[in-house]
């Protein structure tokens, strides 16, 4: 119980610290500009402008969410150690894993707030151009949250033992691989005798399967989305984040603060 209170305190402080940073405001401004651009571009198409604006809008919001998660996430722990803000905090009876978990929760909250805000703007825009707001849209937006969460967790993991440049590199590598997870699977299945197969199998097992969280195309074309297509990726997302956070906590536990 006391532990929960401490985690919550860390989360709230991290949330405040993130939200009050002006960079976030700039990112939101950037998102609004990009959505406006999407609207302009959609008008250049000869047909189906609402399809294009939905597509672009969903992609833009998730990409900006991922960008925030990446660039603010890779300094989440590293920055605190570097600036020394962590020293008085870890001098309290606060186990390190609680610190990591609190950081994750608070930062996730801040990123999600921005993501939800961007999506509300998108929804208004879609309503304005007369696009019907179907449940597909909510489902796609919901699963995209997990894509962002995984990036937050990975960035936090690398941030807890590596410097920002390397963290960015590793996170981007995993992110790209994760977006390709479906293609890697296809390659493994279609080349059963390839010598690289065992390596790819391992890679496939380890990378975050971000393609699980991509319902955007289905949502845009209002294809049927069975409930399992939403539930199982959610379970996967929770577990993946959990594993990454445990590794992050273990890596951070044995780390000397310079």
């Amino acid at each position: 119980m006391a532990g929960l209170n401490r985690i919550w305190a860390v989360a709230q402080t991290t949330f405040r610290e993130t939200i009050r940073n002006k960079i976030l405001l700039h990112m939101v401004g950037f998102a609004v500009a990009m959505l406006g651009l999407a609207w302009v571009v959609s008008n250049w198409s000869i047909g189906e402008p609402d399809k294009i604006i939905t597509d672009l809008g969903l992609t833009i919001t998730v990409l900006i969410g991922v960008l925030i998660a990446l660039f603010a996430g890779i300094v989440l722990v590293y920055g605190e150690v570097e600036r020394g803000t962590i020293l008085p905090i870890l001098a309290k009876p606060l186990p390190r894993w609680e610190f990591v978990l609190g950081k994750f929760i608070g930062f996730s909250g801040a990123v999600l707030l921005v993501y939800v805000g961007m999506n509300l703007i998108l929804i208004l825009l879609l309503a304005a151009v007369g696009r019907p707001i179907t449940p597909h849209l909510w489902q796609a937006m919901y699963l995209s949250i997990w894509e962002i969460e995984l990036v937050v967790a990975l960035a936090l993991l690398f941030s807890s033992f590596s410097n920002p440049s390397l963290s960015a590199l590793y996170t981007i590598m995993l992110y790209v691989a994760g977006r390709f997870s479906f293609d890697i699977k296809l390659f493994i299945d279609s080349n059963p005798l390839a010598p690289s197969r065992p390596i790819l199998e391992v890679v496939y097992g380890v990378i975050p399967h971000l393609s699980y969280f991509n319902l955007r195309q289905a949502a845009v074309h209002t294809l049927d989305i069975p409930w399992e297509r939403v539930v199982w990726p959610t379970v996967y997302g929770v577990l993946y984040c959990g594993v990454v956070l445990i590794i992050a906590a273990l890596a951070f536990r044995s780390r000397d603060l310079a």
Binding site: V41, S42, W44, S45, I46, K51, I52, D55, L56, L58, T59, V176, R179, F180, F182, L210, S211, N214, R216, Q217, V220, H221
Partner: peptide, 16 residues
């Protein structure tokens, strides 16, 4: 990176 529909949109606009 998996958002193929978005790439299609942009290429379509380019075709236009």
């Amino acid at each position: 990176l998996g958002d193929d529909a978005t790439a299609a949109d942009l290429l379509w606009i380019r075709s236009v």
